[in-house]
Design a protein around this nucleic acid. Sequence first.
DNA 1: CGCCTCTAAATTGTGCACAATTGAATTGTG
DNA 2: CACAATTCAATTGTGCACAATTTAGAGGCG
Lengths: 144, 144
Amino acid sequence: MTDAPRLNRQVCFALYSASRAATAVYRPVLEELGLTYPQYLVMLVLWEDEPRGVKELGDELGLDSGTLSPLLKRLESLGLVERRRSGEDERRVAIHLTAAGRELSSKAGALPKRLAEAAGLTADELDQLHNTLARLTAALHNAR
Amino acid sequence: MTDAPRLNRQVCFALYSASRAATAVYRPVLEELGLTYPQYLVMLVLWEDEPRGVKELGDELGLDSGTLSPLLKRLESLGLVERRRSGEDERRVAIHLTAAGRELSSKAGALPKRLAEAAGLTADELDQLHNTLARLTAALHNAR
DNA sequence: CGCCTCTAAATTGTGCACAATTGAATTGTG
DNA sequence: CACAATTCAATTGTGCACAATTTAGAGGCG
């Protein structure tokens, strides 16, 4: 097969596999909360600070309105957020947490610990991995 | 927000972001070949050895028939593979490369190099990242 | 003011991921 | 051999990603 690139050498595939494996570990726990992983990410951002506009959320997560608009409607129909048209700027839609949305944060606290346990890596290794991934992501974004 | 988990601490989010950033670097190059990233992965497996059953492909990539069946039909309609019902076992569908599918491998050779350049990491760091990710993925699969 | 440009969010359309189910072929077991 | 259990692939349905377009509002400028 001459010099065809090999699957098991590709860092890109390693990232793709690891990412899916990690969200698969989260999935059953998130299912109890009634959330998908991307919905959980949006809630994480809102738990840090709210209200936020759709664009702000998109900047934090690297997602666009094509992904977020329907996702936010689902969160709203779950009763976790409210979407309010901004008074000052009628283009903006501010995403507010409801009481239920705020409460969910305590139930979600156990998640990162869960992943760390399943990861089979030392705390140092996890830290280094996180650091490398952050640098990698930044470099890849610059390279576009 | 008390002790709510913070987005920028989460290894899972770092994996999710890095994975999307990496496939985004591949995307414009793959577009020239007429492939999506998952389609490229399937071709990588077939370039190593063919024909392969749907289940074999799924084992290599961690995907099920719900993802692969329609994907393989698209590859077939692109003229890159052929799906043939196996004679010995009528349940199996063997995926064969066409001449065009085999030829595409040479055009795809530049891809991994492209990512390595965009990554902004040393060869050592890339190697270590790959190693860590492989161990992580394996551990996460065992933890399920 | 009128017009142009820019921006925010939503919509449309394609293609994964993944759970759950279905249908057909094969295998194991009594 | 009969038949239950298993296996393989396809299908159905939901929910992301992401490109491209649309709609509406804000802001700048002559």
